[in-house]
Write a protein that binds this DNA or RNA. Sequence first.
DNA 1: TATACGATCACCT
DNA 2: GGTGATCGTATAC
Length: 195
Amino acid sequence: MLRLGHSFYSQPTLQIARDLLGKRLVRILSGQRLSGFIVETEAYIGEDDKACHASRGRTPRTEVMYGPPGYAYVYFIYGMYHCFNVVTEEEGFPAAVLIRALEPSEGLEWMRRHRPGCPEDQLSNGPGKLCAALAIDRTLNGVDLCTSQVFFIEEGWAVADEEIATSPRIGIRSDEVARSKPWRFYLKGNRWVSR
DNA sequence: TATACGATCACCT
DNA sequence: GGTGATCGTATAC
C-alpha cells in the first residue's frame, strides 16, 4: 500500500481529478481500515469558477482551499451532510477536487453500521453518502493527507483513459458558464457512480 | 440579530 | 418528476 505524496498533489487540478479515479481513500477508525476506490470526482478551480466556494473570496470556511495542496477540505451542507475535497494548486490559489463516489473495499461492516437500512449498492455512491459511510466530518477539515495517521489516499487501480467519462458537474444551479464546464470525471459503467 | 440558501439525500407521486 | 429535512455560512440590516 503506497500512500500518495506531495508530488501527486502538486499536479494541476484537472489532472488530479482524473488521476484520483481508481485510487483508494482510506479512513482509520478505532484501528480499523475503512476504504473504497474513488470512481467519481469533480474539480473546482479558483475564484473565477462561480461554482467554487472560493468564488466569493477568502472566508473562514474556504481558508483551507487557499492553503497548500494535499490537505482535506470538509464542509457541512444542507444541515445534515458532509462533503470531502482534496485541496489542490499552490498555496494562495483556491482549488479542490470533490470526491463524489467510492466503490467500497474494506470495512464494509462499519459502513453498513454508519448507513443503517441502506441498500448495499448505495453505501457510498454520493458525496454525502461516502462521508457518512467513512465517518468523515469537520474534525477532518484541514488534515494533511500526506502525513495523517487516520485519513489518506493510497495507490489503487491502473485506469486507462478509455475507461473515463466526463460531464458537467452535478448540482450547480447558479451560473451558466460554471454549469457548462465538463469538470466531472467518472469510471464508465461503474456500478458505484452516483446518479 | 435576521434571513436566504446550499458542490445532498430519502421519500413521495 | 417534485419536495422537505435541517443548520452553518455569508450577507444584509
